[in-house]
Amino acid sequence: MKRRKVALGVVLGAVGALVLVVVAGLLATLGTDGGGGTKDRESAPAATPRAGTDSPRAPASQAPASQASPGPDPGPAGDVRITSCGVDPTTHWPSAKLTITNRSSKTSTYLVGVEFLGASGVRLAEGAALSNDLAPGQRAEATAGALDQVRERVTCRVTKVNRFAS
Rank of each mutant, 00 (worst) to 15 (best):
R3C: 07
R3H: 12
R3Y: 08
R4C: 04
K5A: 10
K5G: 02
V6R: 15
V6E: 13
V6A: 14
L8G: 00
L8T: 10
V10S: 15
V10F: 14
V10E: 15
V10H: 15
V11C: 13
L12H: 13
G13P: 12
V15W: 13
G16C: 07
A17R: 10
A17K: 11
A17I: 15
L18G: 02
V19Q: 09
V19M: 11
V22F: 05
V23W: 00
A24W: 04
A24M: 07
A24D: 07
G25E: 02
A28R: 09
L30N: 03
G31H: 10
T32G: 15
G34I: 05
G34H: 05
G35E: 09
G36V: 12
G37Y: 06
G37S: 15
T38S: 14
T38R: 14
K39G: 14
K39M: 08
D40C: 12
D40Q: 15
S43H: 10
A44K: 05
A44N: 14
A46I: 03
A46V: 07
R50V: 12
G52A: 13
D54N: 11
S55W: 00
R57A: 11
R57G: 14
A60H: 05
S61Y: 01
Q62R: 00
Q62C: 03
A63H: 00
A63N: 04
A63V: 05
A63G: 14
Q67L: 08
A68D: 14
S69M: 08
P70T: 09
P72R: 07
P72Y: 02
P74V: 01
G78T: 01
G78W: 01
D79T: 03
V80T: 06
R81S: 04
I82N: 10
D88M: 08
P89M: 06
P89I: 03
T90M: 04
T90E: 11
T91A: 09
W93C: 03
A96F: 01
A96I: 04
K97L: 00
I100D: 02
T101V: 07
N102W: 09
N102P: 13
S104R: 04
S105V: 10
T107S: 11
T107D: 12
S108D: 07
T109G: 09
L111M: 08
L111A: 10
V112N: 06
G113N: 13
V114Y: 02
V114T: 07
V114P: 04
E115C: 03
E115H: 10
F116I: 06
G118S: 03
A119L: 12
S120E: 12
V122N: 15
V122S: 15
A125M: 06
E126G: 10
A129Y: 05
L130K: 01
S131Y: 00
D133L: 06
L134W: 02
P136D: 04
G137S: 05
Q138E: 15
R139F: 05
G145I: 11
G145R: 13
A146F: 04
A146L: 06
D148H: 09
Q149L: 12
V150Y: 03
V150L: 09
R151N: 14
C156H: 03
R157F: 03
V158F: 02
K160D: 15
K160S: 15
K160N: 14
A165G: 03
A165I: 04
